[in-house]
Design a protein around this nucleic acid. Sequence first.
DNA 1: GTGGTCTAGACCACA
DNA 2: GTGGTCTAGACCACC
Lengths: 131, 131, 131, 131
Amino acid sequence: MYFQINPKNNTPLYEQLIHQVKEMYAKGLLKPNEKLPSVRELSSQMVINPNTVSKAYQELERQGVITTVRGKGTFVSEELIQSHTPQQEENLKQSFKQVIIDSYYAGFSKQELLRWFNDVYEEMEGENDES
Amino acid sequence: MYFQINPKNNTPLYEQLIHQVKEMYAKGLLKPNEKLPSVRELSSQMVINPNTVSKAYQELERQGVITTVRGKGTFVSEELIQSHTPQQEENLKQSFKQVIIDSYYAGFSKQELLRWFNDVYEEMEGENDES
Amino acid sequence: MYFQINPKNNTPLYEQLIHQVKEMYAKGLLKPNEKLPSVRELSSQMVINPNTVSKAYQELERQGVITTVRGKGTFVSEELIQSHTPQQEENLKQSFKQVIIDSYYAGFSKQELLRWFNDVYEEMEGENDES
Amino acid sequence: MYFQINPKNNTPLYEQLIHQVKEMYAKGLLKPNEKLPSVRELSSQMVINPNTVSKAYQELERQGVITTVRGKGTFVSEELIQSHTPQQEENLKQSFKQVIIDSYYAGFSKQELLRWFNDVYEEMEGENDES
DNA sequence: GTGGTCTAGACCACA
DNA sequence: GTGGTCTAGACCACC
């Protein structure tokens, strides 16, 4: 499985890339210190502009997920700092609530959401176990 | 307590309004057939552009949450149709997963998220019971 | 006195802009909630690309110095959060030491640097007093 | 304790090396006429490209900090010429101001910076006394 | 009107 | 080879 993006999606390409990388890391598909494809490589592979990839990488570095070394390339960080401001916590709670309400309006039951919830964590924990 | 919006937030004002209305309905703070403030009224009350309110109302009507009666005003729908396309389901799952992953990076445990999850449903069920 | 940039300087244009804004704010030349020139306005005024201005503004927002409101413009933040990580503290100390050593090699005495030091603070405190 | 470099730092490796040498000299850890390790030696010791070391040495020689004698090696200069152009003075003042402002935004007081300031000079003067 | 995103293409510094 | 910066020009969503 490799990076893939949906150009029809409203969310910006660079954000989709950010999400992809973070998801792959969370699932253990990307290991610490692993080298990521170069900006040019990835951009040609995904058929998007190098600047777009670059923007995603820069934001990921800002978040501490990856580290770039001049002239060498970009690498997954050794370990990530899991911290947050009260502001961020509030935003996350808000987003969480929002998704739940939207799902409610789409006719999904609490049980169904709980299944989704557990599915996500199974993917994450499962992959990390085998390391 | 009434509608309130944060202009500094990244999410568009009209979306914030939509979310507000849906949340209040889900919590039972808005009852079916209840009358909503007029576009002009609400826009002046919230100090935002009437077009913004109008756009939110249009979208809410499209989703079947509210109904406008020409010359009468806009009202909460009698009952809402809870349906969805496979496309929507996929999008919701995706958003759900994304929020969970972001929370993971912010250092929140599965237990904490589960508590948030239940909190949201408690708010919704609690208010709906009394109806 | 207005924004001005030195294209011959090695430091990137967008960083120079960031520094300018932060300096003006520190000196009290920019007041909280004051509106900054729009991206296009400033870019044409400085004869640089709008993207460059945009990049600077985005970084300034990330640092909490300014706030952008969709469709309205960008504004100086109401109040700035002065915080830092141990990592940042270390970096600052390092930079500080570096500048001092470089000045030493250029033949400046401790007294001269102390004068510079006080000059900077006088500019900052002086301007803030009159508010 | 010897030369050490952080490849993840933004400042170029060769600049970090330059700073290191200048700092050690200023602190008296390197004496005039002392022999420096050869390019090959140092590069293998630090696990960096020889070109990088070479570039640093060239720049240090240009600044008059070290002197290379063909076939003999590179040595710390007997005495350094402390001079500067008006342009350099301006640049230094600018950097100085910038670091102070950045520290201000990070929440450090004038007193704290003054302590840093004195700390740097203590390190330098202390070591030089014994010479 | 505002800022945000994306592309295409160029140049540069670093290793 | 790598990433970083900058430009020119386009399109879009939001208000």
